[in-house]
Design a protein around this nucleic acid. Sequence first.
DNA 1: GCAGGAACGAGAGCAGTGCTCACACAAGGG
DNA 2: CCCTTGTGTGAGCACTGCTCTCGTTCCTGC
Lengths: 213, 213
Amino acid sequence: MTTRQEQRAETTERILAAARAQLAEVGAAALSLRAVTREVGMVSSAVYRYFPSRDDLLTALIIEAYDAVGEAAEAADHGGEPLERWVSVWRAVRAWAREHPAQYALIYGSPVPGYAAPQDTLPAAGRVAIVLARIAIEAGGPVAAPPPAVRNALAPDLLPGLTAELAPAAMAAFTQLFGTVGFELFGQYENVVHDRDTFFDHVARTAGATCGL
Amino acid sequence: MTTRQEQRAETTERILAAARAQLAEVGAAALSLRAVTREVGMVSSAVYRYFPSRDDLLTALIIEAYDAVGEAAEAADHGGEPLERWVSVWRAVRAWAREHPAQYALIYGSPVPGYAAPQDTLPAAGRVAIVLARIAIEAGGPVAAPPPAVRNALAPDLLPGLTAELAPAAMAAFTQLFGTVGFELFGQYENVVHDRDTFFDHVARTAGATCGL
DNA sequence: GCAGGAACGAGAGCAGTGCTCACACAAGGG
DNA sequence: CCCTTGTGTGAGCACTGCTCTCGTTCCTGC
């Protein structure tokens, strides 16, 4: 007694699940539509009833990934000392990235060729930033005042309570987080950083300090 | 009067040049061997006399890119105030990245699928880091002492003069540089950071301060 | 000085890709 | 109950990386 809409939603989910699995296995650029449909059990041309192109499938996976890492960050933010909350969120993002390297690469690595990140991805992209910024805002610790010109470099009202004094430091910390995770994941720390847990925690704490934690 | 070796070197260079051009145009993952050979004016199978596979061609391009960005960094380091040298190198890396986004993505973006960065790329990869570290070492300014555990997190003797006190800060700054450039290039600052020159300079100076500049 | 072998480019071919299109069939609303 | 709409099929197009065979051309050892 499933209506056509339910059937469609279910098939869409089955395609996405197969795509997710393939993404984890072979990475974004090698993700093959035909392999996905083979796994689902339909012929290759059928998938175009659900996703107009391979890029649209990728977009769906990108949004999923942003949501997943955002959720991981939010779930890791259980109260306590501001700095401990902050470090906990950093660790959660790193842990998620290590568990899902292909998805991480999809959203924070180089954009897929010929693929322009559509506006659809923007809301989901900010969730981690919001979690981190909120911790810094609530802590309300002292922050080194940025030069006047820098205060206007960022968009105003990114988040309620995110002052022009705090915003540059928060943005830099946000960048540092994903830079560090990315460098570890993409092999730049090979033969250089041995104890990555310790180094990462140290970077997290140092970045936290610049945001008044 | 060209010997066979000269001929071979020349053809190799022509292939690389065409590959470089195509890389800039369509990106790494869409780089097509056949298109490259078409541009060079030979048939697709001939290229395998020069590069055993597409990945080997990519490896050659990766090494080229590391060398190019390293050279840009070195060229930008004309003496003066340590902090000014530091900022100048940061700017040079960013400028190179904006001029060569595809090459930048190739080396600092997500690894190309199925492609494991071979050891060949390691020496070239460190050039920018060496330029930056040397500036910090020569400046010899005060650096916040890292906790004892962090001192052992990095490989010792990365560079002569790079003390265990300075190394974590230098590594973090190095990461911050490529994180910031990457975020700008890959679209994460869209709708968030408006004045990117100003913001970037500010991050550079702040990172310099953590390294004693 | 010349025969033999290595290097080289051409062309056909294989298995795979994204995507399009005409077609058949079933579901469900008027 | 008919007929529009949604859905899956299979053939096919143009492309990819890569392999293999086959002539030709160049260089080297005798």
